[in-house]
């Protein structure tokens, strides 16, 4: 029985079926808590713990799913191209907003983690939290953080942004596709972008832009900000 559960066929099917079911539930009840990513992640973790299957096995068996993550980042380039004129006409404001957004993200996460007593290693690993996973890993390594811990933070931020981000933006009165896309891409990378991608091609395009710009800006400034913070705080 266990050997059947520990196969690509079973684990991929389980992931797809839970995801599809969660999506249906969300369409029916419209609650942000019924986020399909959150539900599927929780159900799969529950399944792995109960059946005593390691994460490494699951990761290997579901490569056929995760493989498409990078191609979907390439596809964001296609989405971006469709709005290239709109981006060009507003490039200064976009760059300014993104620079301030990236800086705010790094400084605030370091500051609040420090105030609430996080360890130095956790703080360094948290700094690139808003960035897409592969960039976050590189930045974390460069600054002396723990890359796999950074990945965990990136995912927590992504799920938080995907679940609550769009509702929060509605509350503070941010509504146009450009602003929603850029800010979700900036704060919660591909997961934030994915959470609004069904609302329209303009949402994905600006989500992808926000994610890419935040990734690049963070890769450049995070090491400096972290060094300065460590110098001031320790």
């Amino acid at each position: 029985m266990i050997s059947f559960l520990n196969t690509p066929l079973f684990q991929v099917s389980l992931t797809l079926v839970v995801f599809i079911t969660a999506k249906k539930l969300q369409n029916k009840y419209k609650s942000p808590l019924l986020n399909p990513i959150l539900i599927t992640v929780l159900v799969v973790i529950g399944f792995l713990l109960i059946s005593d299957i390691s994460y490494d096995d699951y990761k290997k068996h579901t490569m056929v799913i995760s493989f498409w993550l990078a191609p979907s980042v390439i596809a964001l380039g296609y989405a971006l191209y469709n709005f290239i004129e709109e981006i060009k006409s507003d490039v200064k404001r976009i760059l300014l907003a993104m620079f301030l957004g990236s800086l705010t993200g790094i400084v605030s996460v370091i500051g609040f983690a420090y105030l609430f007593g996080a360890s130095k290693l956790t703080i360094i690993s948290l700094a690139p939290k808003s960035v897409t996973t592969p960039i976050a890993i590189e930045v974390s390594k460069e600054m002396g953080g723990v890359p796999s811990l950074t990945v965990a933070f990136v995912i927590v931020v992504g799920i938080f942004g995907a679940v609550f981000g769009h509702s929060f933006l509605k509350i503070i009165g941010v509504k146009n596709a450009k602003a929603v896309g850029l800010s979700l891409g900036a704060s919660a990378h591909a997961l934030g972008t994915a959470s609004i991608s069904e609302k329209g091609p303009d949402y994905s395009a600006f989500g992808g832009l926000g994610m890419a710009l935040n990734g690049i800006i963070t890769a450049i400034i995070a090491p400096w900000v972290v060094q300065l913070a460590i110098f001031l705080l320790y």
């Binding site: 992640v41 792995l48 493989f67 996973t133 995907a162 994905s204």
Partner: peptide, 11 residues
């Protein structure tokens, strides 16, 4: 896109 994230999320 959301679905492709699940294996990493389970990590």
């Amino acid at each position: 896109m959301a679905m492709f994230f699940i294996p990493a999320g389970v990590g």
